[in-house]
Amino acid sequence: MAKMHAVQGPKHTRGEKIGQVIIRIFLALLVFIMVYPLWYVVMYSISDPRLAMQGGAFLWPKGFDTYNYQMILKTNQIWISLRNSVLKTIVGTCISVVLSLMTAYPLSLQRFRGRKFFQGMFFFTMLFHGGIIPTYLVVKNLGLLDSFLALVIPGAMSAYNMFILRNALQAVPASLEESARMDGAGPFRILMQIIAPIVVPSIAAVALFYGLGNWNSYLDGLIYTSSLKLQLMQIYLRNVLAATSSVNAIMSSVGEQSTGYLSQSSTEMAIVVLTVLPIMIVYPWLSRFYVSGLSVGAVKG
């Protein structure tokens, strides 16, 4: 009896406590499986290439060497690719958020005539699409091929993200908009000064969806652009992973002799780390807003 009283909160049976232990061990294992692969790549990339090649850099680096990073960061192409991906992420995300907000706001107003029609029209794009070839032909006929615009415009808005924003805007009390309108404010001003500040968390979530999508996207770059000046980081990574001796190409492009010291794997892993680094830097915000944003999106409109 005395033991029972010592337990705080709701009483748990012994079976439930054992269950807790099993669940926690299972989840700990799962978390390890989710996180370990990336950890290993980081450890491998900072290990001494010759030691790492013999295997064994499983938990901690074997030796320590950043020669691979130094060589990679000396090439011009990595900086060009990084610049393009950063630009695409920043410019593309700004365009996407503004465009989505401007589309979502009228749709969130009950009095907006044609609301149902527009919504249906935009929703349908989530169910059916023409495919990459007709889209490619549209981009080509607009004269956007091999331009920076081709990296940010064709994928500028997703109906899904737009509807997440519309749901958030719909939750704002209509009286706010009405009273501002009575005072003679136009919709652009009302949206920017009154409505948008209220839904900042949703806007941030959508911005992160777009931002991550932009950073990870490669298909636009692959299909619409061909010059190295417009190469994206993801495509740079793909080319390095696909070639069998990108290490030699990198060494010769910075005017160094390939001594066989740097291994292909160690070069590849360093580039994987460089590609993933921006995501990991913003990861705490990313995961938090992703969770809240997706949870908002789960509420159907």
Partner: peptide, 29 residues
């Protein structure tokens, strides 16, 4: 009376028409 709202939705409308509906008709090829 609400014409600014239509101006506001215009870019989005054009976007969906050009990059989603044109390709849908483009499947005719």
């Amino acid at each position: 009376a609400d014409y600014p709202l239509y101006i506001m939705i215009l870019p989005g409308l054009l976007y969906f028409i050009i990059f989603h509906y044109l390709p849908m008709f483009g499947v005719s090829i």
